[in-house]
Simulated scan of single mutants.
Amino acid sequence: MRISAKADYAIRALAALAAEPDRPLVCESIAADEHIPFRFLKAVLRDLRRAGLVRSQRGCEGGYWLGRPAAAITLAEVVAAVDGELLTVHGEGPDDDPGRAPAVAAVWREIRARTEEILTGTTVADLLYANQGAAR
Score class of each variant (00 low, 15 high):
M1W: 11
M1H: 07
S4H: 06
Y9E: 14
A10C: 14
I11E: 08
I11W: 07
R12S: 07
A13L: 03
A13Y: 02
A16S: 10
A16T: 00
L17D: 11
A18V: 01
E20T: 13
E20V: 14
P21S: 08
P21I: 00
D22G: 14
L25S: 10
L25Q: 12
V26A: 08
E28L: 12
I30S: 00
A31N: 11
A32I: 10
D33L: 11
E34Y: 02
H35T: 12
F38R: 15
R39S: 13
R39F: 12
V44T: 14
D47T: 01
D47A: 15
R49W: 00
A51K: 11
A51C: 09
G52E: 07
G52T: 15
L53I: 12
V54Q: 12
R55T: 15
S56G: 10
Q57H: 12
R58K: 11
G59R: 05
G62W: 14
Y64P: 04
R68D: 10
A70S: 07
A71G: 09
A71D: 03
A72P: 01
A72S: 09
I73H: 12
T74I: 09
L75E: 05
A76N: 06
E77A: 09
V78R: 04
V78W: 10
A80Q: 07
V82P: 08
D83W: 04
D83Q: 04
G84F: 02
T88G: 06
T88S: 07
T88W: 01
H90Y: 03
G93Y: 04
D95M: 02
D95G: 01
D97Q: 05
G99L: 10
G99N: 05
R100K: 13
P102T: 06
A105M: 06
A105N: 01
A106P: 06
A106L: 08
W108T: 00
R109I: 07
E110H: 02
I111N: 01
A113L: 14
T115Y: 14
E116T: 05
E116S: 15
E116N: 11
T120V: 11
G121V: 03
G121L: 08
A125P: 01
L128A: 10
L128M: 04
Y129C: 05
A130I: 01
A130H: 07
Q132M: 11
Q132F: 07
Q132E: 15
Q132Y: 14
G133D: 12
A135I: 13
A135L: 14
